[in-house]
Design a protein around this nucleic acid. Structure first.
Lengths: 224, 224
DNA sequence: ATTATATGTGTACCTTTTACACAAGTCAAT
DNA sequence: ATTGACTTGTGTAAAAGGTACACATATAAT
């Protein structure tokens, strides 16, 4: 069992990530299947024990890469979970991160992952999870909701160019609300977060939508 | 050196608290003088190593009580600091909390504290601090600013009854801005956060101010 | 009584948010 | 080529919320 690796035997710091995506209007989270006891075979957040000689976020990125093959540009620290018996074996302090990733990069995942079975689960169809990971996901989802309304974290979720109806669906899916198309557009354009590319989307039936991109420089401003 | 106590020798979890108060319009923070190496004699945030058999917040409260004699009703988890070399001795993961306390309880502090020299410092007159505590304070202050505009954390800062000019000064001190008296009053009363007691403040010269109290039930709502 | 000082109050203006309907571009079927 | 179905794009009026601003009142000190 990897936890006996002397490199981090003397500590119980566990880093883990709640990585979200939005796939066809459904908010999903990345989970991995456990290959060791305890909770063998159950699903859990990707993560693992922090090495003594690596920074927190470095450890988080290493674990994410090892377990899922993913590199997330924009990881944010979330919360600490420290109940004495949250892990059945040894005392484990869990430190959670959250982030989002472009749904088009989902393909990347299943082809490059080496160490674990991984998959995306709709946040209202999550299987029974190891440890207190269900609680950690709920917490991370709240933090994500808070952060998308005033920040650029969503950039990681989109390709370079995207349409306004697309980004609206993502907001609606994550926040669980619906917006009027005209008002959403007005609001989104009044921030200087995104800009018109001049192009229109060729794909998709019906009327072609304008393509937008994120601006390089933007002032932070509360969105909703 | 307490760090050699076998109870937590095998781990490096350090909990610490940024406790703020507002004293005559000045935002201040609670610091303690270190009695051990490293950083002997320097000031630092109150805190210490977490025991293996106590929950995070329990450890935080125990340390606060031991080091300063204070009991803070409303502590909130803040951030994690995990750089490999943030502590010169062993690897230490620092977990910060923040809270506020009534300035009238400041007296309590210096009389009951047993273990450390403690004191309140204006946040723009902080002495050189041990470890990365200066950075941790800045982070905690930002979190405090975020949280007072949409929450009831300030309850711990006031006696049961208080006047509107008093609470306005507190907001202005923490957020570093000034508000129009009429507009502040209108806004504060439009939330159902506080209620009129019917009494007026006897103390203080000039025109007596109405006394308010926090309501038992209140809906969460963004204030500024 | 007069003065100095801090508190309490209302209104007009401006900005932001919300509600809401129709025209236009594409694809598919005929 | 025309029609129908579908999705995108656009403006305006009403409501709500935020901001600016001046004067009367209660107390304490003189």
């Amino acid at each position: 069992m990897e936890i006996n690796n002397p490199r981090y035997k003397k500590q119980g710091i566990h880093v883990m990530a709640a990585i979200f995506t939005v796939d066809h209007g459904i908010t999903k989270i990345l989970l991995v299947e456990r290959k060791n006891e305890p909770f063998y075979g159950m699903w859990s957040l990707p993560g693992g024990a922090l090495y003594n000689d690596e920074d927190l976020e470095d450890g988080m990125r290493r674990e994410l890469l090892e377990k899922t093959g993913l590199v997330i540009p924009n990881l944010r620290q979330c919360s600490v979970f420290g109940k004495v018996h949250r892990s059945p074996c040894m005392r484990m302090i869990g430190i959670s991160y959250f982030g989002v990733i472009d749904r088009f990069k989902v393909e990347l995942l299943t082809s490059t992952l080496k160490t674990s079975n991984a998959g995306w689960f709709a946040i209202n169809q999550i299987p029974p999870l190891a440890y207190d990971h269900q609680e950690i996901i709920q917490d991370a989802l709240e933090k994500l909701k808070e952060s998308i309304v005033e920040s650029d974290i969503l950039e990681s979720l989109f390709p370079k160019e995207f349409t306004l109806p697309e980004i609206q669906k993502v907001y609606e899916s994550i926040l669980g609300v619906n917006y009027d198309r005209r008002n959403f557009r007005k609001r989104m354009l009044s921030l200087d977060l995104i800009e018109d590319t001049g192009e229109t989307a060729k794909f998709g039936g019906k009327k072609p939508a304008k393509l937008y991109r994120f601006r390089k420089e933007k002032k932070q401003k509360r969105i909703f």
